[in-house]
Write a protein that binds this DNA or RNA. Structure first.
Length: 513
RNA sequence: GGCCCGUUCGUCUAGCGGUUCAGGACAUCUCCCUUUCACGGAGAAGAUCACGGGUUCAAAUCCCGUACGGGUCACCA
């Protein structure tokens, strides 16, 4: 497989929104392919018709598009829900007719067999086994001899049942005692004895393949060279290796990614963690049609795709240098599957925010100004011009992790303070405060109301009166902004303009005395 | 429980037999800057490299065992 064109795939099941772990798997696949000049495909594995969730497929496509992880082939090319490429269709439910022949091939070669046991019978056997002290009964090389299948039933009865249309599944016939080995790109040699593997169902009663069959068949047909997926697939990898062998196909290279762990306690990060832990687990908002609840997404939380992707890339991978801030293109350049960590990575939202902050600062002033304008319009229904936005950003960007921080840090830029910080009023507002402000108003009015001029006039006033900055500065802040925190109050005053500032000062004096 | 995988500062990690009594980042703390809050700068603290045995002149790095953690055991993916 060394000189084959690199082709990888991300193959999610549309049973709900894609969570961040899934996005990271897609990202690593994408980075790997692009780094090597190969193809990245998106295939939809919807063989379980009972778990179909409306909108999930659209969500997956939208989420990847937002992240900039664009498929070259399959579903979702150019963000469209449509098949695109020489191996169409790329949705397994649409490929249903094609799997049967492969199951038959295994049947003919003696690597698979028909099994007529009903789900109820299997359930009963498991129950019996459990009460006998064996908690997990398996359909395997030993137990299959006492089940109803084409290995135990007389040939004519099997033919009769098949003719009669009896329900059946096709199971893999697991070899009795064989060591299955494969070299995982991340974990090295992994070895399992078939004694511990069971006769997995390959083709279900409804004619649909299970993941195992569909995955192996499609990866082969679609000429996938590297299977990069989550560690939860490691236990079934030996089965897949065996299937490639049974079919006589070249086996792709495997790379099983470490899991994303919950920041608290134990276990892997799951969809059900939702917002319970105080951060989104999904790339985009997801409105659950059944519960009516909306799970929050990174996009809506204010993250830039660049920050989100950068953060995800570093959960389990590291370039080996001290550089941490990367664009998608830089990630492609730096990525190496061999540098992926083996152990699970515990997610830390604080660091995630830091990544976004770094990307926030890398954006151009023009783009930021436009985003700020949009944010202000959405939050306060106020329209501000580009100059205002640019000036506001020089004041507020430093203290922001998200552009929304800059927007929400100063509602007082868009409305007079509704109230004044009572603690600071108590500390700083004295019987003399109103007088100081009244003295300042004409001094400022005589200036051009620019930040430096306002500050200069203020300082001159202090010098003249012998007052300290701490005695009057906070008072000005309270009057103009209602709070004593924030950037230079003179910058804020410049933004607000003279008449607004004077009105606010009057209002404060009227309110606070 | 069986099988498989993993284990370096609180967290993400660098490290691939000697140049490391372990480097960076987030978080924490201190100081400077700023008469606010942040940003920024400087610094501190924080890991006997899970533990125990080996191998070797030399081990975080190789091997074995133990412990702990995780994953997986469906006609789900």
């Amino acid at each position: 497989m060394s000189d084959r064109r690199v082709r990888v795939r991300f193959a999610p099941s549309p049973t709900g929104p894609l969570h961040m772990g899934g996005v990271r798997t897609a990202l690593y696949n994408y980075l790997f392919a692009k780094k090597l000049g190969g193809d990245f495909l998106l295939r939809i594995e919807d063989t379980d018709q009972t778990r179909f969730v409306p909108g999930a497929e659209q969500y997956i496509v939208d989420a990847l598009a937002w992240c900039g992880i664009s498929p070259d082939e399959g579903i979702g090319v150019n963000g469209q829900i449509a098949d695109h490429g020489p191996h169409a269709p790329y949705r397994q439910s649409d490929r249903k007719p094609l799997y049967r022949a492969f199951a038959d091939q295994l049947l003919a070669a003696g690597h698979a067999y028909y099994a007529f046991d009903t789900p109820e019978e299997l359930e009963a056997v498991r129950e019996r086994s459990k009460s006998a002290g064996n908690p997990n009964w398996q359909y395997n090389s030993i137990t299959r001899t006492s089940m109803k299948n084409s290995l135990t039933l007389p040939e004519d009865e099997v033919a009769r049942r098949l003719d009669a249309g009896d329900a059946y599944v096709i199971r893999v016939k697991m070899p009795r005692n064989e060591e299955v080995k494969f070299e995982d790109r991340i974990r090295g040699w992994v070895s399992v004895n078939t004694l511990n593997l069971d006769d997995k169902v390959l083709l279900k009663g409804d004619g649909m393949p299970t993941y195992h069959l569909a995955n192996v068949v499609d990866d082969h047909l679609m000429e996938i060279t590297h299977v990069i997926r989550g560690e939860e697939w490691l236990p079934s990898a030996p089965l897949h290796v065996l299937l490639y062998r049974f079919f006589g196909w070249e086996q792709p290279e495997f790379a099983h990614l470490p899991l994303l762990l919950r920041p608290d306690g134990n276990g892997k990060l799951s969809k059900r963690d939702g917002d319970r832990l105080g951060f989104p687990v999904f790339p985009l908002n997801w409105a659950n049609a059944e519960t009516g609840e909306t799970a929050s997404g990174y996009r809506e939380r204010g993250f830039y795709p660049e920050g989100f992707v950068n953060m995800l890339a570093f959960l389990g991978w590291n370039p080996g240098t001290n550089q941490e801030i990367f664009s998608l293109d830089e990630l492609i350049e730096a990525f190496s599957i061999d540098k992926v960590h083996k152990a699970g990575a515990r997610f830390d939202f604080e660091k995630a925010k830091w990544f976004n902050q770094q990307h926030l600062r890398q954006r151009s002033p023009e783009v930021l100004a436009a985003e700020y304008q949009a944010g202000v319009a959405a939050a306060f229904g106020a329209a501000v011009d580009t100059d205002f936005a640019a000036k506001a950003l020089t004041l507020f960007l430093d203290r922001s992790e998200f552009i929304s921080d800059a927007v929400h840090a100063a509602p007082y830029l868009f409305a007079k303070p509704a109230e004044y910080d009572s603690v600071m009023v108590g500390k700083k507002w004295t019987s003399e405060s109103a007088g100081h402000l009244r003295s300042l108003v004409p001094l400022w009015a005589a200036s051009n109301y620019s930040e430096p001029a306002l500050e200069e006039a203020f300082k001159a006033f202090l010098t003249e009166t012998g007052l300290g900055f701490g005695a009057v500065g906070p008072v000005v802040r309270l009057a103009v902004a209602g709070t004593t925190q924030g950037p230079s109050i003179f910058g804020v005053m410049e933004l607000l303009g003279r008449s607004e500032c004077e009105a606010r000062i009057e209002k404060a004096i009227a309110t606070l005395g």
